[in-house]
Nucleic acid binder design. Structure first.
Length: 968
RNA sequence: GCCGCUAUGGCGGAAUUGGUAGACGCGCUGGAUUCAAAAUCCAGUUCCUCCGGGAGUGUGGGUUCGAUUCCCACUGGCGGUACCA
């Protein structure tokens, strides 16, 4: 038998596939363990070395748990619907179903190459009709329910209808779009269409006109989490706010439970904090202000009711309908001009400029506590979506109100004396109330309470909890997603497509490009018009399929239900969920929402989907940039040139064939990404730069390669290159470099296939684990992989000697050999449980070094070691296990138990410290008492040397730890 | 700004409840083997040093017989988020 990684990898991967070694048996007698990796989107570029970090970690746990006697569910599938697949299809002309199938096959192949122990028979695909039938069913159920705040759960819409018929809205405490009051009589008199419209106010999946993130370039609306800094996360296109008729999920109904549930799960503090921030709970007061000369009231939300005597004006969001009603004729022009200005401004301007602007409506509100007249302004800084979209402005205690007041010359009344709290800012709720009538002298928290109570007693408002989280926009005007299972009748009443008619599949279309705000499905006339009615043409976002997929793996082929009660009652929930931190908010939050909804329906037995979450750290790679500047020649001509990153503006330059002048960095200057394959690292201590040599540029001109083509393009953009010359006379440009997430777009992705081919999957797996703690970010580097390879060779050589023959002896192992083995068992068992895989690899190295030194060839030591390394190096361990005569697969073999008796030491090497500084060590019997240890130490001549001429003030002896002499 | 994470040799990193800082690996240095190289093996490798020692876990303080570990105040890096009333 030879240590030939390519042969071993292929042999055992084929064997596992043939034998279905990793199939999950329906064995409910065993305890279950569910290890899940986050659903990948199968992109065209395949896996890079950052992806497997999590996959290997979870695979080790899955294999470990199998060996420990658990029935392990460890599946993998693909999030194949969604924007990226569709954009790719539009760019390449390949139908998304086709590209998805190709990419999925490639992902699976790569995962098999890594030796991952997935049960592929349970694989799912969100774009598979057998799968999305149940996505549609679940969303249909959401549509058929409303949220009863008193019962704190979802209830069937039929129960709401029954209540409305008997009592109207009286006695209903529901999660709703807006507060509505309807009597039973009114409800009974309603037409079907009117009823349907009213119910939309309560449904958990509902259709409404609201301001949404519209992305013109993508031709669709986006959810809040798909927008970053006013641009689409996918494609980086500008996004604007537009009122549109859209389907949404009422996640706000579950805000409190989503918050409370975090206490029951094992997620990192950071991740919990992100969820808490996203939900954004704040406790404050809703206060009604009268408006002079109007019947309407102005409702505001504030967390600082105590500062109400400091309110000197009101501000409402420009988008509110109330604006039009409040504007006086004299102010009409000013308001219209301002609204036009706001309309012109993109989300991006708003975010980036952060300046205070506004306009006066001409109307006045009346402070309910002191009847002060407060001018009502509109201003961009007040958001229509938060609270009531209106505020009472207290310039003395709010940064933005202060800037606004200063700009428009509005009075500022100090109401909080912060002199007792030096260093406190306006945001801190600290200080003593002044100029505030009955609140004077109170500390802020007390005053908030008192003011709220007074407002309530005057019936001018109430305490209110407010959330930052918005309902989840669940419509996309795109082709590649699940169609909403909704049809509209002749009166435009939406009806759920019955389960027998599911799935609603996509029509075949030649051209599925989105056209401004209209779903491409509108063009599939035959598909849209059905005997049941007119189909909804919006599709669902990618999150629809991914927020419940972990349940489908429990029972992937069920055609009667999304999961059978038996399956879900056995598998319950995910014990360990591993994936990237980029899904910390959206994916985790939305699947928690759907899970809680299904819990309310009694379809799942647990209230949280993921018990423990591990976010693997990102593996970064260098991203190199080539710098573009302008050469301003003496005759005033401007020539674009590529320059070294360290060349400063104004530097005199002379470029062959162009002339001489100096460098200008202005509008046309900038950087372009450079494919790393053309770049050489600088030799000395400089990680922020790399060199692009002229020779590689010339090589690129000749190459037939995608990267070479891109590279030629960027070089053609500038007419000349201001080469520098190194010591050997070679010409180069210096590029700037930063570490970043691996992606094909940044030309820094490293493919795991090449590494597996060279070193074998076992080596790759152990090397990735050896890089450091799995949850920490780190740059990719192959330096060190040789060390892991050498270790595997040495491990192999413990078993296989000269002539590739097994060299096992059945002799009794020595005490020392058993100690090495059991130290290893203990360390690896504990560390896998702690998800500390890097230290496991070290432990294997230490044990291998020691056993090599001991020349150990005892079966009693080496056979258990094979079972221990199996989760990390599945191929090599399988080969050795079988060679040693093991039955079946090593991956079903029992995990060795640690026997403490082998770990007991006869003596302990005590560090002897003087005043806390360790000076020497002494071997003292392990069972020595404190006094024995002290006596033994004092008896030592070296110790006596240190103590000579000094007074021993105190001696500290910690048995089996250390000895410390405190001397003076 | 706010929230979270993080800081240890030339590098990745290790160090149960506070108890020998630098395990393991890379790199580097020297040696063995070889005609030579690769591969392999052995030894050394935190820094300073007058070879007695001394300093040392981002910085400054504190608690302690003893601090990488606990407390206080800073600084840098990474990630998230932001007119959220």
């Amino acid at each position: 038998m030879k240590f030939d990684v390519q042969v071993l990898d292929k042999k055992w991967q084929q064997y596992w596939k043939d034998q279905k070694t990793y199939a999950t048996p329906e064995d409910t007698a065993k305890p279950k363990f569910y290890v899940l990796d986050m659903f990948p989107y199968p992109s065209g570029s395949g896996l890079h070395v950052g992806h497997p970090l999590g996959y290997i970690g979870s695979d080790i746990v899955a294999r470990f748990k199998r060996q420990r006697g658990f029935n392990v569910l460890h599946p993998m599938g693909f999030d194949s619907f969604g924007l990226p697949a569709e954009q790719y299809a539009i760019d390449t002309g390949v139908h998304p179903a086709e590209s998805t199938a190709t990419n999925t096959a490639r992902y699976r192949e790569q995962m098999e190459t890594l030796g991952l122990s997935f049960d592929w028979d349970r694989s799912v695909n969100t774009s598979d009709p057998n799968y999305f039938k149940w996505t549609q069913w679940i969303i249909g159920q959401v549509f058929e329910h409303w949220y009863d705040r008193d019962a704190q759960r979802a209830r069937p819409i039929t129960e709401l209808i029954a209540h409305l018929e008997q009592h109207g809205t009286d006695g209903i405490n529901a999660a709703e779009t807006e507060e509505k009051i309807v009597t039973a009589r009114e409800f009974q008199a309603m037409t079907e269409k009117e009823r349907s419209d009213l119910l939309m106010n309560y449904r958990l999946a509902f259709r409404s006109v609201s301001y949404v993130n519209w992305c013109e370039a993508l031709g669709t609306v986006l959810a809040n989490d798909e927008v970053k800094d006013g641009r689409s996360e996918r494609g980086n296109h500008p996004v604007e706010q537009r009122p549109m008729l859209q389907w949404s999920l009422r996640i706000t109904a579950y805000a409190e439970r989503l918050l409370a549930g975090l206490a029951d799960v094992d997620y990192s503090e950071g991740l919990k904090a992100q969820q808490v921030n996203w939900i954004g709970k704040s406790i404050g007061a809703l206060v009604h202000f009268d408006i002079e000369g109007h019947d309407e009231q102005l409702d505001i939300f504030t967390t600082r009711a105590d500062t109400i005597f400091g309110a000197t004006f009101m501000v409402i969001a420009p988008e509110l309908d109330l604006v039009d009603q409040l504007t006086t004729p004299e102010q009409r022009k000013e308001i219209d001009d301002y609204l036009a200005y706001v309309g012109r401004r993109s989300e991006l301007d708003r975010v980036s400029e952060n300046k205070v602007t506004g306009a006066f409506t001409g109307a006045y509100a009346i402070n309910p506590l002191n009847n002060a007249r407060l001018p009502i302004y509109i201003a961009e800084y007040v958001l229509k979506d938060y609270g009531t979209g209106a505020i009472m402005a207290v310039p003395s205690d709010d940064e933005r109100d202060k800037r606004f007041a200063e700009k428009y010359g509005i009075e500022i009344i100090d109401v909080v004396d912060k002199s007792d709290y030096p260093g406190a800012t306006l945001k801190d709720k600290l200080g003593k109330l002044i100029n505030s009538d009955f609140l004077n002298g109170m500390e802020v928290p007390e005053a908030i309470e008192a003011a709220t109570r007074r407002i309530e007693s005057l019936d001018r408002g109430k305490e209110q909890v407010n959330y930052r989280i918005r309902d989840l926009v669940f419509s996309r005007q795109r082709y590649w997603g699940e169609p909403w299972p909704i049809v509209y009748d002749e009166n435009d009443v939406p009806r759920l497509v019955p389960v027998e008619a599911l799935p609603v599949t996509l029509p075949e279309m030649e051209d599925f490009r989105a056209v401004s705000g209209v779903s491409p499905l509108e063009r599939a006339k035959e598909w849209v018009n059905t005997p049941l009615g007119r189909r909804e043409t919006d599709t669902m976002p990618a999150t629809a399929g991914s927020n419940w997929y972990y349940l489908r793996y429990m029972d992937p082929h069920n055609s009667d239900a999304f999961v059978s009660p038996e399956a879900v009652n056995y598998w319950q929930d995910v014990d360990l969920y591993v994936g990237g931190a980029e899904h910390a908010v959206s994916h985790i939050l939305y699947s928690r929402l759907i899970h809680k909804f299904l819990y309310d329906l009694g379809k799942v037995p647990t209230s949280e989907p993921y018990k423990k979450l591990l976010n693997q750290g990102m593996i970064g790679g260098p991203i190199s940039y080539i710098h573009l500047g302008v050469l301003l020649t003496e005759d005033g001509q401007r020539h674009p040139i590529w320059v070294s990153s360290d060349v400063a503006e104004g530097t005199p330059l002379s470029v062959d064939g162009v002339g001489s002048g100096h460098l200008v960095l202005d509008g046309s200057a900038g950087t372009r990404l450079t494919p790393l394959r053309f770049v050489t690292e600088t030799s000395v201590n400089n990680e922020s730069s790399m060199r692009l040599y002229r020779s590689s540029v010339e090589e690129a001109q000749r190459m037939e390669h995608q990267d070479a083509a891109y590279f030629r393009t960027i070089l053609q953009q500038a007419g000349a290159f201001a080469w520098k010359t190194d010591r050997e006379g070679r010409q180069y440009l210096e590029l700037s470099v930063e570490q970043g997430k691996m992606s094909k777009r940044k030309y820094n992705a490293v493919n795991p296939d090449d590494i597996c081919a060279r070193y074998g999957a076992d080596c790759f797996r152990m090397y990735e684990m050896f890089l450091g703690p799995i949850d920490q970010a780190k740059p990719w580097s192959v330096s060190g992989i040789d060390g892991v390879y050498r270790f595997l060779r040495r491990f192999w050589n413990l078993y296989v000697g000269e002539g590739d023959q097994l060299t096992m002896s059945d002799g009794a192992p020595t005490k020392q050999e058993m100690k090495v083995l059991h130290t290893l068992i203990k360390k690896v068992t504990e560390d896998i449980d702690k998800l500390s895989f890097n230290t496991c690899v070290s432990a294997f190295m230490v044990a291998t070094n020691e056993l090599t030194k001991l020349n150990c060839n005892k079966r009693a030591v080496l056979e258990p070691a094979v079972r221990l390394i199996a989760p990390f190096a599945p191929h090599l361990s399988e080969e050795l296990y079988r060679a040693l005569g093991g039955e079946g697969s090593v991956h079903h073999a029992d995990w060795p138990d640690v026997e403490e008796k082998y770990l007991v030491e006869d003596s302990f090497t005590y560090p002897i410290a003087f005043n806390g500084k360790t000076r020497l060590t002494l071997d003292i019997p392990a069972d020595a008492t404190k006094q024995d240890v002290e006596d033994a130490a004092r008896a030592d001549t070296q110790v006596q040397g240190y103590l000579e001429g000094k007074t021993v003030r105190k001696v500290i002896v910690v048995p089996k730890r250390m000895v410390n002499f405190v001397v003076g």
